[in-house]
Write a protein that binds this DNA or RNA. Structure first.
Length: 572
RNA sequence: GGCGAGGUAGCUCAGCUGGUUAGAGCGCACGACUCAUAAUCGUGAGGUCGAGAGUUCAAGUCUCUCCCUCGCCA
């Protein structure tokens, strides 16, 4: 039994995530976690909300709430959304909780001892009316080069030139519109990443189980040269810059910058899991305390790769402490909305809570896995969604379960038949399984979820093909025993299909397995024996119950309604 | 502007280190079946693999140029 630590990129706190976020980190991590559990491994799947930073403060202000209360509320909302999609986190923590704060301060202490943190004074724009320093992109004004009136403090969108906030003429706060600004000096801690470059490069060189997307992004950053980065900010909401409870002198009103503390949240959330009475977190994270045999797998969108291959490793490796670092890294491209990007402001795209209003989580899980943005960006369209759900889930899987269980109920008294000898059709389906089941497992191991889903679908389709070959409804007229074999095999296929479906569509899989009475301890992914055994696993005479319709088809009228509601068509 | 990813059948996508007639699902056409959610099964029609040039016995698969799309960054 292997020990597998899984994390998915931490969703930011300011609002429910859209389907692209789900498809690119939390969902595939969950599919993989469920798969490895079904294979009998010891899995710890950790996630958390990333709660610090200016956007959280502003979102709380906009909601008229205290930041802490706002984050409390949003964390619960995201937790519920995750539950709705059956995300099987072992723990869903928060970067604002005590363990993450403690660990962040710990890393800062250790890095400073190693000479990797220094104080530097810089100039930043302060907004007197907002009573806060403004991050570069929150300062706007007139571009000194082209005269564009809404240039950002980091760049002019009109002429494209790079700017400093102090370059802008007539600068104003993007937050309040106030022009009452001044440049102030402010002191910050900097992480001296320039000293870390070769160490990180060696570490990246040694990584063997990263996809090319991840490696190329890491090397791109390294090739451009790492820069020292400020790791503190003049904010109220965040991890205090303190040592053993005492604020650092001159940093009483400052906190750590969110990019520094967020990934530490992986460890912090594991510590939360432990403090909730679930065990020892260090055996998962400290190689000197038992984590040397852990395989650590991270899931994230491609925008996060640099943070996981360079920035966070700088923190971890810089400490020179025996922390576990990532072994396998799975990065996803974008799920696009009709070829463009999901956008909150333009009302383009579907968000997790809205998706659950429309359909149960399993529908989305299947679509987002079978159409995962693995090799390249993948387009979401309502038409494609409808086609995939109706075909794969309603017609191929749902209808198969329905047709054979109903037939059993009407002709075989709702019981698994015991009579009849197997023949050619049974040999054929057994052979199909002999080749296809290992393919599914191999694809899952390789984290090729799209291909795994496709192979699972092919197995479901083979079940229908089998029934066509066995045609029990024809044989029933002349030879009930011959029909019985087909029905028995069909029912066992239902059980197998349910077992296979578990990582992808767990709720529906459970319904299927309950319907044909597969006990909990017989639901694992153990396909080592002959396939023929899988086709006669259910006890003869066992009573089965046809389940309700597993997946309702998506009607054209629904599609039209959703397109209207979500601005579904491509923007003109 | 710099950087990254990508342009393969009507649609969504596979095609590893170059090698027989370029694949899958959906959609479409025709046929079969009737146990089933007007489901299923079979057969078939569809592509000069963005354009041009080059390397090679051989290129969707390598090199160069160009065009187009998407994204990221400061």
């Amino acid at each position: 039994m292997a020990r597998i630590l899984i994390t998915s990129a931490l969703p930011y706190i300011n609002g429910v995530k859209h389907l692209g976020n789900l498809a690119g980190s939390m969902l595939p991590a969950d599919v993989y976690a469920r798969f490895q559990r079904l294979r009998g491994h010891d899995v710890l799947y950790i996630c958390a909300t990333d709660e610090h930073g200016t956007p959280a403060e502003l979102a709380a202000d906009a909601a008229g709430m205290d930041v802490r209360a706002y984050c409390d509320e949003q964390h619960d909302i995201q937790k519920r959304a995750g539950d709705g999609f059956s995300l099987s986190y072992d723990y869903f923590g928060r970067t604002s909780n005590a363990p993450s704060i403690r660990l962040t301060q710990h890393f800062a202490d250790v890095l400073e001892q190693k000479g990797l943190i220094v104080e530097r004074v810089e100039e930043q724009v302060f907004s007197i009316d907002d009573d806060r320093f403004l991050p570069d992109r929150y300062v706007e004004g007139t571009c000194p080069h082209c005269g564009f009136e809404r240039a950002r403090g980091d760049q002019c969108d009109s002429c494209g030139r790079l700017l400093e906030p102090t370059d802008l003429k007539e600068p104003y706060s993007k937050i309040s519109g106030s022009k009452n600004l001044e440049v102030r000096e402010t002191k910050h801690l900097h992480l001296v990443q320039t000293k870390m470059e070769s160490r990180i490069r060696d570490w990246v060189d040694a990584a063997t189980e990263w996809p090319s997307l991840a490696k190329s992004i890491a090397y791109k950053w390294l090739d451009e040269g790492l820069r020292d980065r400020s790791i503190t900010r003049d904010l109220k909401w965040g991890v205090p810059v303190a040592h053993e409870g005492t604020p650092r002198e001159g940093f009483e009103t400052k906190v750590f910058y969110v990019w520094f503390d967020a990934p530490i949240g992986y460890i912090g959330a594991t510590a939360e899991w432990a403090e909730a009475g679930n065990g020892d977190w260090e055996i998962w994270w400290r190689t000197d305390k038992g984590a040397e045999d852990v395989t650590y797998v991270q899931f994230m969108g491609k925008d996060n790769v640099a943070f996981h291959t360079v920035s966070f490793p700088a923190t971890i490796l810089g400490s020179e402490e025996p922390w576990k670092t990532v072994d396998k890294l799975k990065a996803f491209n974008w799920l696009t909305w009709y070829g463009g990007k999901f956008s909150t402001s333009e009302k383009r795209g579907v968000f997790m809570d809205q998706a659950l209003d429309i359909l149960p989580g399993d529908y989305w899980r299947w679509y987002l896995t079978a159409n995962a943005p693995e090799g390249s960006d993948a387009a979401f369209t309502w038409e494609h969604f409808q086609g995939l759900i109706n075909s794969d889930l309603a017609n191929v899987l749902g209808n198969f379960v329905n047709r054979i269980t109903k037939y059993t109920a009407s002709k075989f008294d709702g019981q698994v038949p015991s009579t009849g000898e197997t023949g050619e059709a049974e040999a054929w389906i057994a052979q199909e399984l002999e080749t296809r089941l290992p393919a599914v497992v191999a694809n899952m191991e390789a984290m090729e979820f799209r291909k795994a889903a496709s192979e699972v679908r092919a197995i479901w389709a083979a079940g229908n093909e089998y029934l066509t070959k066995a045609e029990p409804w024809v044989k029933y007229k002349s030879d009930v025993d011959a029909a019985a074999v087909g029905v028995r095999t069909g029912l066992n296929l239902v059980a197998l299909f349910g077992i296979l479906a578990q990582p992808f569509i767990p709720e529906a899989a459970k319904k299927v397995l309950d319907a044909v009475g597969v006990p909990e301890d017989r639901r694992s992914w153990n396909f080592d024996g002959p396939a023929a055994d899988l086709l006669d696993a259910l006890p003869h005479g066992l009573a089965i119950t046809p389940p309700d319709v597993l997946f309702a088809k998506i009607e054209d009228a629904q599609l039209a309604e959703w397109s209207e509601r979500f601005g579904g068509a491509p923007s003109q």
